[in-house]
Design a protein around this nucleic acid. Structure first.
Lengths: 411, 411
DNA sequence: TTGAAAGCGATACCAC
DNA sequence: GTGGTATCGCTTTCAA
């Protein structure tokens, strides 16, 4: 491996931009490569010394070293200081004279200095990198309607705190599910966020030994170095139950998610509790188990809608499944909401645009991500003191056209 | 900074899992922290020597050093080799004896050795990190319907090649748009992918000086170290034009994206060319400029639908805008497709579920991402030889219910 | 084929 | 306050 780098040069033709702005044609950037090689080894040292000699601690305007980025040594050399002093000045240590700090900062700016994360990581054992694990989704990671917005919030929260995000995920690597630790070890991540973790994941035991803080979304985990962030799904499902009951429905069915997701248990619990609160009985027979996907919602609906007497309302534990229910109803010629009310969960963007628009339980997905970010960062930087071990955000019922009064007579 | 690390320990109660599987209650992981500190400094050296002494080159079963990850020195010590030899063996250099390599690999496995990316990056100046820049989207990054799936493909392609993905984006950092280089310099990324780059971005000139290969999505850029990946939008828009014309439409309007996106020019060009091919005239008056958002599509539609004679078909250069058109038509009491045909572009997931389902031009988004990944990696590892400077994927017309025969009489 | 040693760029300890 | 220096884990000459 050579370690050398070409430095490309791009010239964007301003005329072309102007032309395109005038609706004429699109701009084309032109990139040409100049053969200047990246300096290394002895050459680099020579350059550094040259900088030290030609620029004594004076007011001369400095410019970045050619062919490579400025380092602490460059700043130290230009100022006649030691790298140690420069490092302290740059990192805000108290034991630097104000004058020195000022001069260091100024030269750093002039040389366009940027700290080298790799070097920093090597010596501090801290990378300022957070790993996000997308679990149980073969292909849809960022394009998963629920996960994507959580990750958006996560990214925002982490950027604010000065952390970067690294993505891991099932199905991305050869040879089945790789160990969490293997993925993490290479990049020395400081913390991790888990999305879609199932309780039957063979690697559950591994979470044990992760040498960094972790946050799970929607999966309760107890411990000093772990935080779980999620919505209060018991409450969310309860809201839906009361809404349907208030509309006069009595034969209410539910299509739940799979049993390996803690949220399934929570939503079922909340839903049945809600029905019970208004004096309705819940029968096990009204429950069908899906897996959160559209297809499973469709299937579950077909099964439920063939029963006699037919349920007048179906609560699906995810919007995707609820969309499947709508499709099944449409195909079976059952009018929504006249003959059947349908409730979903998540409030994904498709929900509002479905026909009819879906009544659902809104989850503040972006805030979930932000909360997750704050939790990992808090755990990393301040330890578990003052960091809640569990963060529960409030879900909200969104009533749209897919639910309506119970039909007076049953088919 | 101490550099010390606690090692957490988590015990997952197996009974609880079983109970939950039985529908009883959800599993709770229990994490407890043991006070064993991470070794460093002198301590670490002592451990290493101990390993070297207690395990001479024998067949003894080795285990990872306690409290820290194994390093090359551990392997070397256990085998009585030099770190240099171990490094060469692990990296597949030819100048190692087969026996040595075998033994090194075996010990590495036993010690659960993982290379340290930071150390490697520091010396090789290669990080195996690719930066993806989300531009021009304040909040929706991963949750943007177009971008998310491209990034999914990108991630997949990169993982296959052994690269990781780092995310940058506008609005993530304080103080306005930061320089591309500033973001990249810190982490020493090996290459970059740009999404949503506008031709009026003040940082265009900066692309010039990026010291690594770059790929733009949907923005043509020429140069040895740059590749642009996208769809053939001229062709895509042409397909839509011919489809609408074939349905008998004569008064056809278009809502384009903003002029700072090269795709806008391409789609307009293709659309007018398509109309011309079938003998239709294109009037500038039929063009409204939006900005790809739903709101701008709505506005544009309101404007167009107030005109007399009213257009009988509208082509929106993005599905989001087309959804806005549908909303406008609905509010204005104009039936789609009976009185107005609507075409979109992108085939986002909402398109198929819209009512009526949207006729649109499908873009293979995931493949776009995969192609981008292959391009950056190719550029990095093999230089520009044999790497196409531009990759154009084929779009596809998807006909759904939002387009239909032109109404015989005009309102 | 292997080993010794010089860094890569930064931090932190210990003197002064 | 400041400087010298060992060190993080690894790659890469250069000798042996």
């Amino acid at each position: 491996m050579k370690g050398h780098r070409r430095r490309p040069r791009l010239r964007l033709s301003a005329t072309r931009i102007a032309q395109f702005a005038a609706g004429d044609r699109p701009p084309i950037g032109e990139v040409t490569v100049l053969p200047s090689l990246r300096g290394k080894g002895g050459e680099g040292v020579a350059q550094r010394q040259a900088i030290g000699r030609t620029t004594p601690p004076s007011r001369k305007r400095l410019s970045p070293p050619p062919g490579r980025r400025a380092t602490l040594r460059d700043i130290a050399g230009a100022l006649g200081l030691s790298v140690a002093a420069v490092s302290r000045a740059l990192n805000g240590h108290p034991d630097v004279s104000p004058t020195t700090r000022r001069r260091v900062l100024e030269v750093a700016r002039q040389l366009n200095y940027r700290p080298n994360a790799a070097a920093k990581t090597l010596v501090t054992h801290r990378s300022r990198l957070i790993g996000v694990y997308f679990l149980g989704q073969e292909r849809a990671r960022f394009s998963h309607p629920f996960a994507s917005e959580v990750v958006d919030g996560l990214l925002e929260g982490l950027a604010t705190a000065g952390y970067d995000l690294l993505v891991f995920g099932d199905g991305l690597y050869d040879g089945g599910a790789p160990s969490f630790m293997d993925l993490a070890a290479h990049r020395q991540i400081d913390g991790a966020v888990f999305l879609g973790l199932r309780t039957d994941d063979p690697r559950w035991g591994e979470l044990a030994r992760l040498p960094f803080p972790l946050v799970t979304i929607d999966v309760p985990v107890e411990g000093e170095r772990a935080v779980s962030v999620g919505c209060d799904h018991i409450e969310g499902a309860r809201l839906m139950a009361r809404h349907l009951a208030a509309l006069g429905h009595r034969r209410i069915a539910m299509i739940n998610g799979h049993r390996w997701a803690p949220v399934s248990w929570e939503r079922l619990t909340g839903f049945t509790a809600g029905l019970r609160q208004v004096g309705l009985e819940w029968e096990e027979a009204c429950l069908v188990e899906g897996d959160f996907t559209e297809a499973s919602g469709y299937q579950g609906a077909v099964e439920l809608l063939r029963r006699r007497p037919r349920p007048t309302a179906i609560f699906a534990a995810s919007d995707l499944m609820a969309l499947g229910v709508l499709r099944a109803a449409r195909e079976m010629g059952i009018a929504v909401p006249e003959e059947l009310s349908v409730g979903g969960y998540d409030d994904i963007s498709d929900a509002a645009r479905a026909s009819p628009p879906l009544t659902t339980v809104h989850q503040p997905r972006r805030q979930l991500g932000v909360a997750a970010a704050q939790s990992v960062v808090g755990l990393i930087e301040r330890g578990h003191d003052g960091i809640p071990s569990r963060v529960l955000l409030r879900p909200e019922l969104v009533v749209r056209a897919s639910t309506g009064p119970a039909p007076s007579s049953s088919p």
